[in-house]
Design a protein around this nucleic acid. Sequence first.
DNA 1: GCCATGGCTAGTA
DNA 2: GCCATGGCTAGTA
Length: 104
Amino acid sequence: MQPFTERVVTIIKAIPEGKVMTYGQIAREAGSPRAARQVVRVLHSMSRKHRLPWHRVVNTKGQIAIQDDESHQEQLFSLESEGVEIGLNGIIDLEKYQYHPSDF
DNA sequence: GCCATGGCTAGTA
DNA sequence: GCCATGGCTAGTA
């Protein structure tokens, strides 16, 4: 596993229950501000193997980014069951639910 | 080439 | 709706 990937995995693992982080935010925390798509890559390819809380990652607008219906529903359900509220517009209030790691 | 993003800007190469 | 972004991998030489 490459250093960047390792950092991304570590960061994602540290997102607490009931909180979310953003693709771009994770990329920044990992030291590569424009590497949001790499965060996507990591989530897509390593979520199972590393048991990542992949459902706690949303886009910068606070929306579930995943397109596939089944996965989309699963993410929605997982978040709601952790107490994350999702509006009828599909938007999560980031002011309220975004996790800001202070230590890394 | 992939990818579940992010930003939405204007002048230069 | 468009397009620059970038770390990584598969596949080729």
